[in-house]
Amino acid sequence: MGWFQVPWSDYTPALLEGLRRTVGYTVVSFAGAAVLGLVLALLRLSPMRVLRIPATVYTEVFKNVPLLAIIFLTYFGLASAGIRLGVFEAGCASLVIFYAAYLSETFRAAISGVHGGQQEAAEALGLGRVSTFAYVIFPQALRLALPGTNTMLVDLLKSTSLLVTISAAELMTQGRLITSATFRALEVYVVIAAVYFALCYPLSQSLLWLERRIRSGVPLSPRRRRRLKIATELLAEKGAPV
């Protein structure tokens, strides 16, 4: 009698659907958490108390509440108050709320970590507030924030498994359903764990590769590549006197 007794070919569509849902939760939630985290970080760095204090309260509250409690509050708690969110909306909202608090800390530290002289130099060149942030502060902060942000992305992907508690149809939920049908818990969850590993390991390695590329100064955007190509051609030309 072999170790694998679950008829996996029968469950392949369910697993693929779970995979699709897991990736969907991860992409939508991470994008939302990154945007909200950046906004919170900027609010926390604001000199205005009226902006700083609510952002600080938000961060401290949701950093110190378990994700599972947030999932239950969002899905069951709000429903009891008359606000009924779908499973996908509730799942994404929970992940966004929770990870935005952590990402805001990472972003805040990264923005604060950019040397004050950079802001001054940008101001002295006549760059406005938006340009200073977009072209000087943010690119440098991004480099500082990348390691922490990448860790959060992988962590968020793994945390989608907690959505099994609201039957979110992601990988873990599919595993639970297959277990109920086959009573082969060990085999099923070993396979589910392997699928998570197969998702997370390449993702974290890709992010490390991206981090190294950015650190080494390799231009990533086509516009910047084109600009540097033009500059290189001009630099190679014989110079006319200025």
């Binding site: 002289g117 950079q118 130099a121 006549g126 760059l127 440098q140 600009r227 540097l228 500059a231």
Partner: peptide, 18 residues
Amino acid sequence: NLFPHLTAVENVSLAQLR
């Protein structure tokens, strides 16, 4: 106070472009 994420030529051109 050069911008460390930009090359020398990009440092010089940034303000002009903006």
